[in-house]
Design a protein around this nucleic acid. Structure first.
Lengths: 196, 196
DNA sequence: ATCATCTGTCCGGCCTCTTGACATTTGAGG
DNA sequence: CCTCAAATGTCAAGAGGCCGGACAGATGAT
């Protein structure tokens, strides 16, 4: 069920992703060399292809893992609030702040030779959206079961897309964006408020 | 040189030894089951045989690893003293104290069904002696180069055997044994003292 | 135009782990 | 004393994954 081989497999994947992450942060997507990833992990180049298919697969896997870690942090911020509106505001602010400091986001958006990488947040952003949506949705349903699933999903979707847009195209500071979004969505969520 | 496969191999060995260690501490040598070690590590029974040869090999490997860890601690105590006699006393006391608290030593000496295990400290103790001697000798030569190698070796050998004897057959408390040994060997080492 | 570098693919060989079977030993219980 | 169950130790066949080398194609620099 959880054999040594399974754990080894996961570890291999994880170490490969570590190496790839470092390479991308250092030199953007174009600076990512399959051979470097392999050598730095102490494995053959072929093994990297076996694991991820191609270079694009490596980038996707790095981004998915990073997204999941990112969401853990955002969900933790969500969990600290009992009122849904407060949660929304805090989570949005946290997400935007985190993104601004995230080395991988910086590399994807501002490194020369990362046009392809940035597409994972825009035209090819389904994966990031899906992973994020799934995690946020599950969390919201668990913490605010009184909100109808459909309403929760709608809110998550709206907020998520607005946040992603602000990551790709920064505007006002995080707190301002969070306040704005909270204000706009408050009427929609007013019946579920938990005033302290 | 340090491929992923190498690291995995070391990790496998280490996890097997962890499982074996726990089993021995819990149930003595007789309570050690090859099948349990394998299953607990998530590996087949055959793999355990491939790695250690037989059950006796497992025990030996566990003891060698534990000895090396033990010596790291003792050598750290040695390193804190500038005077060789002080080092001797402090190291002896530390070794006896550590041994008294060590779960594996307890299991080997007092668990029912560990007669064979206890032999690794007595009639079949060459391995433990050699490993310990090697580590201590190297450490002494590095820290007190002014002591002739032959004298250093002799002192290490005498002290080591006395300490091992006191572990197997406890007598006075650690501090008393340490003081006694230091007093006896002081004349032999007097010319190398570094009085503070 | 040429050369070097990188991606992506294929394949044969090798090594390790797995699986199942088997003989042998040992201890407990009828 | 005999039997059964459990554990050790050995063997061989099979599978899976990694390695190493080779190759074609694309790309960019000189």
């Amino acid at each position: 069920m959880d054999s040594f081989a399974d754990r080894t497999k996961r570890r291999l994947r994880d170490e490969l992703l570590d190496a790839a992450y470092d390479a991308i942060v250092a030199g953007g997507y174009d600076g990512l060399r399959m051979n470097d990833v392999a050598r730095r992990t102490g494995v053959s180049r072929q093994t990297v292809y076996n694991e991820f298919g191609d270079k694009w697969g490596v980038l996707q896997a790095v981004v998915v893992r990073e997204t999941e870690r990112f969401l853990l942090d955002v969900n933790a911020a969500l969990a600290e609030q009992s009122d849904p509106i407060d949660g929304l505001r805090v989570a949005v602010e946290r997400a935007l702040t985190l993104a601004g400091d995230n080395p991988l986001v910086k590399a994807a958006l501002s490194q020369p030779g990362s046009d392809q990488a940035s597409q994972l947040l825009t035209t090819r952003g389904q994966q990031v959206l899906e992973v994020s949506h799934q995690r946020l949705d599950a969390h919201v349903r668990e913490h605010w079961p009184e909100i109808p699933p459909e309403d929760a999903t709608s809110c998550v979707d709206v907020a998520l897309r607005v946040v992603l847009s602000h990551i790709v195209t920064p505007g006002p500071p995080p707190a301002a964006v969070a306040a704005q979004l909270a204000r706009v969505l408050t009427p929609f969520l007013s019946s579920y408020r938990r005033q302290v």
